[in-house]
Design a protein around this nucleic acid. Sequence first.
DNA 1: CTGTTAGCGCCTTCAC
DNA 2: GTGAAGGCGCTAACAG
Lengths: 330, 330
Amino acid sequence: MSIQDVARQAGVSVATVSRVFNLPDKVTPATRTHVEQVAQALGYLPNASARTLRTQRSRVIGVVLPTLLNPVFAECLQGIAQAAAAGGYAILPFATDYQLAQEDRAVHLLLAGNVDGMILVVSNPATSSALQRLAEAGLPYVLAYNRHPEHPCVSVDGEQAVAELVAHLAALGHRRITMVSGQFAASDRAQQRWRGFQRGMAAAGLADAPVLEVPFVETAVQDVTALLQRPGRPTALVCSNDLLAIRSIRAAHLAGLAVPRDLSVAGFDGIALGEDLTPMLSTVAQPNADIGRCSVQLLVQAMASGAPLAPDAGLTLPHHFRTGESCASA
Amino acid sequence: MSIQDVARQAGVSVATVSRVFNLPDKVTPATRTHVEQVAQALGYLPNASARTLRTQRSRVIGVVLPTLLNPVFAECLQGIAQAAAAGGYAILPFATDYQLAQEDRAVHLLLAGNVDGMILVVSNPATSSALQRLAEAGLPYVLAYNRHPEHPCVSVDGEQAVAELVAHLAALGHRRITMVSGQFAASDRAQQRWRGFQRGMAAAGLADAPVLEVPFVETAVQDVTALLQRPGRPTALVCSNDLLAIRSIRAAHLAGLAVPRDLSVAGFDGIALGEDLTPMLSTVAQPNADIGRCSVQLLVQAMASGAPLAPDAGLTLPHHFRTGESCASA
DNA sequence: CTGTTAGCGCCTTCAC
DNA sequence: GTGAAGGCGCTAACAG
């Protein structure tokens, strides 16, 4: 079922059929209607590969992100998918599982897959070889969640946000605050949030800025439980993401502590699920779907112009503190 | 950067270059190595669109699912992505937001997009027009989570599972059990689980099988809260999915009831997050990632043979009851 | 306004 | 074992 069949059946040339689909104005209404009916009757659909080959545009956006198992990225992808669909683009997603080799592989596959542009969440923009190859390829791209002066990024100011969060906890009377973080090496987000924590603690006049780096999610609960059972335990935890916060609340429970009565726990990310929990999760909420949507918009712009985005074309979206029920005064 | 450039640069014909990438055995090791090096140096990547156009195989699997905002589907998609990648396939996902028009649109786009096969979670296989068109197109496909005798499906026996769950609650001494369900019209899963609930209640000698149909997630909490504040409130809730269960726990909290002391709440789906909650969610766990993986495997098989799958090629995967902390004796 | 035609990059017979 | 050539389906000049 090709454009040839439609042309033959409709008694016109393939060019006319093509025009009916791509430049309807350049065809007489009568023939247009006729061709449309024939196409409809035959169930004709223009072949995307042929069109891509010919035009050198696939109308597909490649997406590289760590995992869909963290709702943050699922929410973001949902936003990407929505905006992409609205703009007439399809998406080709790859999950890297936080592994650099997978980042490389994903970019490679996407490059070979003729995508018009890419949105990615990389581990570390400063050192990512995948990112470098992508930049060299001259393909438009946007980083989401990452922050780096030499790349166009759509993100929130995580450092500032955590500093504010610490100020909030300090105002509630907390003095012993510990940060619970995922692996610093696995993401620049964790590092930014960690810097924000240090800044916030210093600003609050708290000399020490203790951090518990949780290497694996599987052991997060027991690691935090152990922390909470040590003497001089913190009265508040600042978690570098919502999943860690949720696990920390569980850890508190296992350690015999009630949240927020005995321990305050704050998260970061603003996953939708946090609002349905009991206690409702107090967290720095990022506009996850918007991060996705804005990334698409920037990218679509760049793809239209054909040129890669300037590093300063990025966007810092507003975050806000979601007052939940998991933080109370000390 | 095309196969021509590589051929010229390597001093061989395009046919040889093509063979190096597709039938390496048919090329002398020496020339193969040479060509590979040249290709590498030039950063050559075979053009997917051209290859697809020529071979009529895209090595892309289309995926249609309701939303990524429900972790069930995110987990499944992660499984799909993983298995697809392992099999050398990419995925092209579409979210329908539970809207039939979007199902049609997605199938249409995917059909035009030259996918080799599709995995979909539809609202209702019995009435889906998208599914009908797909079947007519003769493209291999697999339904995930859906169950229908005329289509190949990968799912668990939700009816049986809920019946077992009710028996479990009855054994704990519960007599007033209410089902909390999403819209029946929105998914055949909800209907199956509802049938299982009725069967289970009857088997437990409980004549009545009350159900609260929650039309919108936004109002779920207040709807359930209202239910719990009425006299003669249930002592146990069977929720048709985990998100509803989580919201029901919140509703209990708002109604002044402690879970599981005053109210038992069970979910369905087995989202990973449920294990990290406090109380840990008691739920019928489905192997979500496996559902995705198995769907891919079936599909890959079918795509290799070129023929659509037989309706009875589907799979019923085992579910299991995850004993959490949200159910206790009456 | 419509038709003819030349490729887009690749794979694959068919010769050699 | 290697090369030459046709054509997958489509769009965009260019003619008419």
